[in-house]
Design a protein around this nucleic acid. Sequence first.
DNA 1: CAGTTAATTAACTGATCGGTTTACTAATCG
DNA 2: CGATTAGTAAACCGATCAGTTAATTAACTG
Lengths: 115, 115
Amino acid sequence: MSTDPLSLTFAALADPTRRAILARLSQGESSVKELAEPFAMSLPAVSKHLKVLERAGLITRGKEAQWRPCRLDPGPLQDVSQWLEHYSRFWDQSLGRLDEMLRAIKARPPDKSGV
Amino acid sequence: MSTDPLSLTFAALADPTRRAILARLSQGESSVKELAEPFAMSLPAVSKHLKVLERAGLITRGKEAQWRPCRLDPGPLQDVSQWLEHYSRFWDQSLGRLDEMLRAIKARPPDKSGV
DNA sequence: CAGTTAATTAACTGATCGGTTTACTAATCG
DNA sequence: CGATTAGTAAACCGATCAGTTAATTAACTG
């Protein structure tokens, strides 16, 4: 697997269980056991999912007695959003015309940023 | 791997080569051979990447003599954008304060303080 | 027709993924 | 102290991934 930040983020998001965990955490902090409850899988499995999310920077974990409260970190999601903006002209009505113009002007230098 | 549309899309995006291919296609249609040129990998490898992108609906392919021109389909990217919107309140400046308030209210029920 | 070009298919490989069970650490409770 | 609770680590498994090389299909070219 690729280890650049964007790839780690997309890979972490490419699993419904992990997206459900993020949705849960968007409501507020939660312990591992609480997060695991809705799923028909073992606790270690959830623990692994959390590790994937953590490696992508999508969650951070605290320490509180014997609990490891997880909370959402939106940073990587914002990075995804920025990456997406690069393509928004393809579906954004108001920018469609501008895009046509820009593309017609081929004098643009090759843009490799944000690949 | 999960086979729901969003998972297929995120998985397809979790690879720098495939993102580079999309970036290239955002400039216009291209043949497989042209797409493969910038990469230090075999043509079949690129062909496989294209199949992943196609399965996610991110590209469509035509037929023109012995070429299979690929072009970008922004649909799945728009779906990702919508999914992201659900989280945009976490980094959107203007909504940040409101979110803080909502979270402060909602984070009450599972009360572990003083346990 | 034979030869070239474009692309895919097939078979194989090593690495990673998503899950399991078992065993372990660490903190709290009685 | 021992027992319980929360979570992680280790070892294992089958499936998938990302790449390879070799063979094949399909269309154009001379």
